[in-house]
Structure formats: C-alpha cells, structure tokens
C-alpha cells in the first residue's frame, strides 16, 4: 500500500486536475466534509473496538470511504488503488492474520498509550504545518503543474490519444516504471500467499489432515 501511495503521490504531483475550482462552499465540498467526518468516526471506532473481526470490517469501510474521498478530489487512480488494495486485499490479509493469531485484542494499560499518542500528535502537527506552505489546489503556477506536468497535459492528446492524462502517464510515458511496480506488488502478493495462504499452517493450530 505504501508503494501504491508513493506511486500515486508521484503521479499526483505532476498531473493537474482538470479545472481549478473557485474555493467556496459547493456541493462537492460539502460531500467531502461529510466523507472526512465519516472517516474520522470510523478511525475512532476502530481504535476503541477490541474484537478484531469487527476491526477488519471497519478497516474495509475505512478504505472504501477514503477511496470515495479520493474520487471526490479527482484522484481517480489513487482511489482505485485504495479500493483494490485497501478494501479488497488488505481486508483478506487481515482476516488471514486473525485466523493465525487471536480473535480479541488484549487491553492495553493507559500508561503505555501516552508515548505513542505524543509521537502521533507531533507527527500530525508537523504534517499539518507542512501543508501551510503548499500551493492551492489546482494552482496553475504551482511547481507540480508548471514544468513536466504542463508538457504532459499539452502533449497527451497528440502523443498518446487517450482522454485521461493519468492513464497516459502511467501506462505510456512511464510504462516501464509501472511495469516494475506491478512486479513488486506481484512479488509481495506471492510472499503473502506463501506466508498465509497455501502453506502448512492452518488457523486454530490444526497442521494437516493427519497425513504426516
């Protein structure tokens, strides 16, 4: 998922959303706010829940919500990666992990949660601070939109003849890059299968059918 996020960040930094919208309280903006509120509610519920099956279900919901949020932000490719990896694959992986370990999370003492909370808070503050310097959404003069991004937007209709610039960049301009990423994801999937799926370990401690 990190790889997908990195790839999409790379793409997102160089491909402009189609039209810069006037900042204001539009309907799409209100929908985005509602989606973010639902995301926050889901995250809090995931933290408070102790039964891991429910947490896995909620993580699927979280992925679907963030995918919808990415679509609302015009980042369709990121949204699709999130839906496939987050809602599809990682829910299944979480369930496999639950099958191999425990069904219920052990309670954690209050004192042990203080240090992680501080670390997360500081990181979040640094990230929010970093967003202050960022150019506005869809700003034509932003560095991400100015140089190679503009060239992609201008040349894609004549070079590649596909309507979507992101698709053109991913599948044609950076075809080898995407191929390498796909190989990496495939290898990771194979490793997960070897660890969790078709190996000798079955959930509940039953190792085989008594053949050995």
């Amino acid at each position: 998922m990190m790889l997908a996020a990195a790839a999409s960040a790379e793409v997102g930094s160089e491909v402009t959303p189609s039209t810069p919208e006037v900042v204001g309280f539009t309907g799409a903006f209100a929908v985005e706010l509602c989606l973010l509120a639902l995301l926050a509610a889901t995250a809090v519920a995931m933290i408070r829940m102790r039964r891991l099956f429910g947490v896995a279900m909620l993580s699927g919901i979280y992925s679907l919500l963030s995918a919808a949020f990415f679509v609302a932000l015009d980042a369709v490719d990121v949204a699709f990666t999130e839906a496939a990896v987050g809602a599809g694959m990682s829910t299944v992986l979480l369930l496999s992990g639950i099958a191999l370990t425990a069904k219920v999370e052990m309670p954690v003492s209050r004192t042990r949660t203080i240090a992680p909370l501080i670390i997360v808070g500081v990181t979040a503050a640094a990230l929010v601070y970093a967003t202050i310097d960022m150019p506005g959404f869809g700003d034509a003069n932003a560095p991400a939109n100015a140089y190679v991004g503009r060239a992609y937007i201008e040349q894609t209709p004549s070079d590649i003849e596909v309507p979507n610039v992101v698709t053109a960049v991913l599948a044609s301009y950076r075809g080898f890059d995407t191929f390498g990423e796909t190989v990496v994801v495939f290898t990771a999937g194979l490793a997960c299968l070897l660890l969790l799926g078709a190996g000798a370990i079955r959930g509940g401690g039953r190792n085989d059918d008594g053949e050995h």
């Binding site: 279900m57 699927g60 829910t91 299944v92 369930l95 496999s96 099958a99 969790l196 799926g197 079955r202 959930g203 509940g204």
Partner: peptide, 10 residues
Amino acid sequence: ILKFFRYGDL
C-alpha cells in the same frame, strides 16, 4: 470474508 468466516481460513 464469508469464506473466511465459514471455514476459519481462506
């Protein structure tokens, strides 16, 4: 998910 729940693993 349903398969996991029915058979305990995938």
